[in-house]
Nucleic acid binder design. Sequence first.
DNA 1: TCCTCGGTTGACAACGCTGTCCACGAACCT
DNA 2: AGGTTCGTGGACAGCGTTGTCAACCGAGGA
Lengths: 344, 344
Amino acid sequence: MTTLSANGTARKLRRATMNDVARLAGVSIKTVSRVVNDEAGVHPSTAERVLAAIDQLGFRRNLSARNLRRGSSTGTVGLVLEDVGNPFYSGVTRAVEEVSRSRGRQVITGSSDEDPARERELALEFCSRRVDGLLIVPAGVQHGYLVPEMRAGTPVVFLDRPAGDVVADTVLVDNVGGTAEAVLHLASFGHRRIAFLGDSPDIFTADERLRGFREGCARAGLGFPESLVVMGPHDQDSVRAALRRLRDAADPATAVVTGNNRITVHALRALAGSASRPALLGFDDFELADLLSPPVSVIAHDASALGKAAADLLYARLDGDTSPPRRVVLPVRLVARGSGEVRA
Amino acid sequence: MTTLSANGTARKLRRATMNDVARLAGVSIKTVSRVVNDEAGVHPSTAERVLAAIDQLGFRRNLSARNLRRGSSTGTVGLVLEDVGNPFYSGVTRAVEEVSRSRGRQVITGSSDEDPARERELALEFCSRRVDGLLIVPAGVQHGYLVPEMRAGTPVVFLDRPAGDVVADTVLVDNVGGTAEAVLHLASFGHRRIAFLGDSPDIFTADERLRGFREGCARAGLGFPESLVVMGPHDQDSVRAALRRLRDAADPATAVVTGNNRITVHALRALAGSASRPALLGFDDFELADLLSPPVSVIAHDASALGKAAADLLYARLDGDTSPPRRVVLPVRLVARGSGEVRA
DNA sequence: TCCTCGGTTGACAACGCTGTCCACGAACCT
DNA sequence: AGGTTCGTGGACAGCGTTGTCAACCGAGGA
């Protein structure tokens, strides 16, 4: 094994172009192009000379120039989500990458951090790069800025949340049905005082899950326990405070539905070691939920299924599908592990 | 809120170019360029006409063409890692994205799945796209293919594992020291039969951690317990089988060091509910480790610190740093939570 | 009056690449 | 011998943008 040094020495050197290769090989630039693209009609000995020159110069075809000239696809898709660092979204990312790979495309990602301005900035930047398509987990509710892009032929698919004011393909999960099912499940174990701990109602999924919670309460004949609904907390301290309030109330909650994986984890941490724990059922599955004690029951849905469905939809558009925009709602399933099966 | 439809109708329409804008606004293309780039010297009324035309046509500057012409940075960096879906790497990704954002650059990611051919393919594809720099979690040990790229001025930083045969900036974590510390920690609780469950020794980090394990054993005066070393298992079944073998041995292990987060989780699942559990100390921290019972002690290191350090190194090169390649080793720390503090 | 000057605008080339079209020589046919 | 084909190679334009340079116009100075 030889150790090759390749650092800074020649840093400012311009990259070799086809012209350089052509000059070195003593052929025309077009012949180089032919060799690089495996086009027929180049004499083997000529090709060999060209390949040697390519090797010697470390030439690598400039894809930007190629795509510009050919007016063809850039071979990229843009993915705007809330936070690649969140395991849920990284699962989505992986699925998108997987599908894209099979279609010979690369994925550019960006995290919006729930900031609509940032989402917009990322999406438009991607459009400037002429991505072939855009996958967006909306942070805001206004997407009119995408209309020119869509009209210009960039297909857009919204993930996890719908767009505010444009009609486009959308993949969602059954937030309402899942949360309602959670309430009914808890009620079937005798719970009458069920609380809901959700993220900010500005977030579509949080709001939908609250809707599902109300629906579940209604179907279980529990009325509308507004005092048991807390929306907004999404860090450790605020979740802890909310739980304390629910516990210390005159008529405390005996069960809690948590609105997403982060809130569930914060709730678990807040409740750890406390003597009497309410029954708990969380929206979103998460790793190790089965190993906690008690194991945590959840409304599970599949990040990769979400990513794959969205990517499939996008690639169908790229393949020329011009049918009306679709809205796909993926099913969720209740995974009973223990924490939600405690009698009131 | 108006609902805008923007689907398929005009799909095959070519995107508007500066030429189109110029024609519509009745100015030269150069004037459009001036407006788009906020260059001085355009009469306000002219600029207004141009902006109106841009708006009407939904024009968006083509960055590929711009970069081609200016010969400047493409504003992208490539990140090749094992699997974006793995929480550890998604943390790395997020950190890289964060740093890149502050430097006005976008991140293109790709998962190699530990396949050297795939790593190479991704890295070279990124080079063809003329990324400004490359961050690579090596899957293989041969990186000579990168030499032409590096010579041509693309800085490369290796993450988490060193490159096989090129000299370049590298950011690692203290695998050896951390694992040795783990062994000494367990030994301090009286353990003499300590096992190591690691991933395939082909993987640098797995091999280094094994080295650290041996070093720790030596320093603790435990000799070289080769029968207690199992390398390779990385799925649920093989980890379970390995643990069973260790337990059923004539002189069973009383403590286990697991070589990475996935193996730790598999081990936890395999040991769940079993009567006598060995002391456990895992390499890599993971979410909820503190909430398990017993809470899991780990050798922790920080994915974002790794990503940030690597990105910082890369951007330093892009800023013109031509000092010799650096090797940064990030410290790890033992987080004692309970599972590793069981007396033998 | 002529000239200069700042403010505005445009013509043109070029970035690296590929599609089109044409040139050249050798071999083949009639 | 002249014409036709095939195999090989090159000249050139243009993808959408920007840097360079020059032209134009009205105002101000000599």
